[in-house]
Design a protein around this nucleic acid. Structure first.
Length: 192
DNA sequence: TTGAATGAAAA
DNA sequence: TTTTCATTCAA
């Protein structure tokens, strides 16, 4: 760490409309419930209870065609393998791909897609990203609940002989600019 | 098996 | 601090 917290480049937005936050339409359908094994005595009240995880405004997941969940890479890794809990970006990316907002029809290269989605992620307003962070947090809680004893154990000597990673194809700057434009348009165009 | 992104957590 | 790995699927 250190004094390099200047991780917030241009984000002045002096005239950002702040998106009309459509109040959380979540009545009592999602009432807070204590876990069965949790005794009221041990309940620690979190400073900020963000129980309600609102749906993203900019890039909502497609309501249709989203039931068949593939086991991803069921090969390799024994069935005992517990996958890491997905972080906010991974969740966002998955949703983005599934939604087919821009995927496989125009770009089949997932590496490029990752670039576009990454740029889109950075262009997203803070509020929107926070929603995905909340989702990630929730996923983490579920993960902990499902595998309480899970712990991330990265293998050290994994990357082969530390050989040079050969790049398949570096995205040309021209295409890079195109990606940036796409990402920008994606966010701008999704604004209400 | 790799690439490509971001982020959480381990070493 | 650096490295691993979570998702995703065409090469």
């Amino acid at each position: 760490m250190g004094a390099d917290e200047a991780r917030d480049p241009g984000n002045p937005s002096p005239m950002t409309p702040i998106l009309t936050w459509a109040v959380p339409v979540e009545p009592a359908s999602q009432s807070i419930a204590f876990a069965p094994n949790m005794t009221p005595g041990t309940f620690i009240d979190p400073p900020l209870a963000i129980e309600a995880v609102f749906e993203p405004i900019l890039f909502p997941s497609s309501p249709s065609e989203s039931s068949v969940r593939r086991p991803a890479h069921s090969k390799k890794r024994g069935e005992d393998h517990i996958p890491r809990p997905p972080n906010a970006f991974i969740l966002f990316r998955s949703s983005f791909i599934k939604s087919q907002h821009v995927s496989t029809d125009v770009e089949t290269n997932h590496s490029t897609l990752s670039k576009i989605i990454g740029l889109t992620w950075q262009n997203m307003p803070h509020d929107e990203r926070q929603i995905w962070h909340a989702k990630a947090k929730k996923a983490l809680e579920e993960h902990r609940k499902k595998w309480p004893q899970y712990a991330f154990r990265p293998s050290h000597g994994k990357t082969k002989g530390a050989a040079e990673k050969r790049k398949v194809r570096e995205v040309e700057p021209k295409d890079m600019k195109r990606c940036a434009k796409i990402a920008e348009l994606l966010v701008e165009g999704s604004r209400p």
